[in-house]
């Protein structure tokens, strides 16, 4: 049975509160400057004059939604392909990990990843990124970010099962096209 762990993200529930990002920082002791999980507000639309009363400005399709992303534990992990030291590898359960003992700090993976997931820890001199809270998983617990989300907008599970439950969408604006690295994520779009 091919296994691939994946995140689920519900953009229609996410308020952009960044509790997930802080949970990740806390759980993993990440210093300022390193955020394995990131939350972005994405918006558009504009303001136009009211057609009948030009003295009023009215919003024209103004919208904002947030996306919360971490490493996508891609099915085609470009980071691992790029890493010259094979410090990045994909585990049997699909989780993409960095063996920090092997990392030489060339930062090539940082360029290769379409999601900005690998982030360099200057102080340790090694590349770091979301490890799917592997220690928690091993103890049968959920990832820290998932359990923190007040909106229950984050989930995780087997990619196939998530797809059955929530569909096949794996990219929304402003995320890059999923063709690049086949991210292991299922997304419910905002609207």
């Amino acid at each position: 049975m091919a296994k691939q762990l994946a995140f689920y993200f519900d953009a229609s529930a996410c308020t952009g509160c960044k509790a997930c990002a802080m949970a990740c920082k806390d759980k993993n002791n990440l210093p300022v400057g390193i955020n394995w999980r990131k939350v972005f507000d994405y918006g558009g639309g504009g303001w136009i004059q009211h057609p009948a009363h030009p003295e009023f400005m009215i919003p024209n399709n103004v919208f904002v939604y947030s996306t919360s992303t971490a490493c996508m534990h891609c099915e085609k992990p470009l980071c691992a392909e790029a890493c010259p030291a094979k410090a990045i590898f994909k585990r049997d359960d699909g989780v993409v990990l960095i063996d920090k003992d092997l990392c030489i700090g060339c930062r090539y993976c940082e360029w290769a990843c379409p999601y900005g997931a690998p982030q360099f820890n200057e102080e340790l001199g090694v590349m770091t990124k979301c490890d799917f809270c592997q220690d928690y998983l091993a103890q049968g617990q959920n990832p820290a970010c998932v359990d923190q989300c007040p909106q229950r907008a984050l989930g995780f599970g087997e990619l196939d099962e998530l797809r059955q439950m929530y569909g096949n969408i794996n990219a929304i604006e402003p995320l890059p096209s999923s063709d690049i690295s086949h991210p292991a994520i299922v997304i419910t779009p905002h609207k």
Binding site: C17, K18, A19, A21, M22, A23, K25, D26, D147, Q148, C149, P150
Partner: peptide
């Protein structure tokens, strides 16, 4: 469940 501030309390 708490917010980012709560999680940064320490």
């Amino acid at each position: 469940r708490g917010c980012a501030r709560g999680r940064a309390q320490r």
